[in-house]
Design a protein around this nucleic acid. Structure first.
Lengths: 211, 211
DNA sequence: ACGGTTCCTGACCGTATGGTCAAATTCACG
DNA sequence: CGTGAATTTGACCATACGGTCAGGAACCGT
């Protein structure tokens, strides 16, 4: 028992450190943007000396890239609900729920992603062209199948997907604006439920799968 | 003819210089964010020496603030169509058209605004709390009147407005992503029309004012 | 033509930032 | 233990950035 290295193996400790840094970086990048973020700020937030960051991540760009890639993976994974559904009402409804939940739980990641795309994706352009492209085409095919089966209105799948992304991510990216318009208070549980319900109601009715 | 001061009065030339700088600044801020933008870059884009910028705008913050304020004014003004309509189909439809047109013609401004809000509005928080708050409440009142008159479904006006903002601004803020998914080409005229039609169709049907 | 005001700009400055490095510390393992 | 590898960190460096300033150019009313 005494031989046991503290409670973590060396590799585990390394992963923990990286996670700590990545978490702090995500927050700082989301609040200040890539240019406004400083390694010192990230280090302070992580409670580590700045030089330590450079031991784990050689450059600011490398750290940023890792943050963005993690967000992207998280994103894709959360979209599985879309595929497992056997109809538009269930599939799109669950997708909206999932993305709203991400906006609520991980607003920083959403903001980093949004900023990266707005700046013409200098770091993850290859992901847009490959993974995201394929994902989008796959989902569009599913929607087209639902349309062909007469289970929803004939809408352009791309624009529907854009609307889903835009509406759900808005609650993260523009959360501060929403909070301000809500009297300076973040949305509470009931308000989040109302938001989800509103979004689902309008979109699902708008594409002809409810009422 | 020779006595004529070039073709501009002194005041006109001043305004022209300011406009040139503001235009360059909007583009640079939108592409690099506040932190990533440099006065040198803006000066180069405007074709002026850096010191000249500081003659017209004392600090980077002052220049940025002016950019954001201009965008906000532009925004509000374009929303007049909402008020002049006498029903939800016309009012909301025209609002969508107007905002889509802004996203198409002034994507840089939209991006600057989005970034500013995502960073918790350090510069224009007061506008959010006063002007935007009042504007939103006014529009919500109109929507509630339409609902009371039975001219549309009873939806939460705030969430409807968020959806309108999110969906229309998405075409500016995430224009690069859309362009990439569109095979690397910007949307052409027909595609923009299709986008507008899709958005209007889904939302207007979703709130029960068409079909 | 002149005097004053506005406008323009190259050269310069202090600071903050990303990144480096070598010395110190901790760790894994025979 | 002892030894080499991995980790940590304070001190340091080069650069780039926002901002200043003084001197000159252009302009305008008289």
């Amino acid at each position: 028992m005494a031989a046991q290295p503290r409670s973590n193996s060396k590799k585990e400790r390394r992963q923990e450190s990286e996670k700590l840094i990545l978490s702090a970086a995500e927050k700082v990048f989301s609040e200040a943007g890539f240019g406004g973020a400083t390694m010192q700020l990230i280090a302070d937030m992580a409670g580590l000396p700045k030089a330590n960051l450079h031991y784990y991540f050689p450059t600011k760009e490398a750290l940023y890239r890792q943050v963005v890639e993690n967000i992207f993976q998280f994103w894709l994974q959360a979209a599985d609900v879309f595929d497992q559904a056997d109809g538009p009402a269930e599939g799109i409804g669950a997708y909206i729920d999932a993305k709203m939940e991400i906006s609520r739980r991980h607003p920083a990641g959403s903001k980093v992603w949004a900023t990266e795309v707005m700046h013409r994706a200098p770091v993850i352009q290859d992901y847009l062209e490959t993974t995201l492209m394929e994902w989008t085409e796959g989902r569009a095919a599913i929607i087209n199948r639902w349309i062909a089966e007469g289970r929803m209105d004939p809408v352009d799948p791309d624009h529907l997907l854009y609307m889903l992304w835009a509406t759900t991510q808005h609650y993260a990216d523009f959360g501060h604006q929403i909070e301000t318009l809500n009297g300076g208070k973040p949305l509470d549980d009931a308000q989040w439920e109302a938001a989800k319900a509103s979004v689902k109601r309008i979109i699902l009715k708008g594409i002809g799968v409810v009422e």
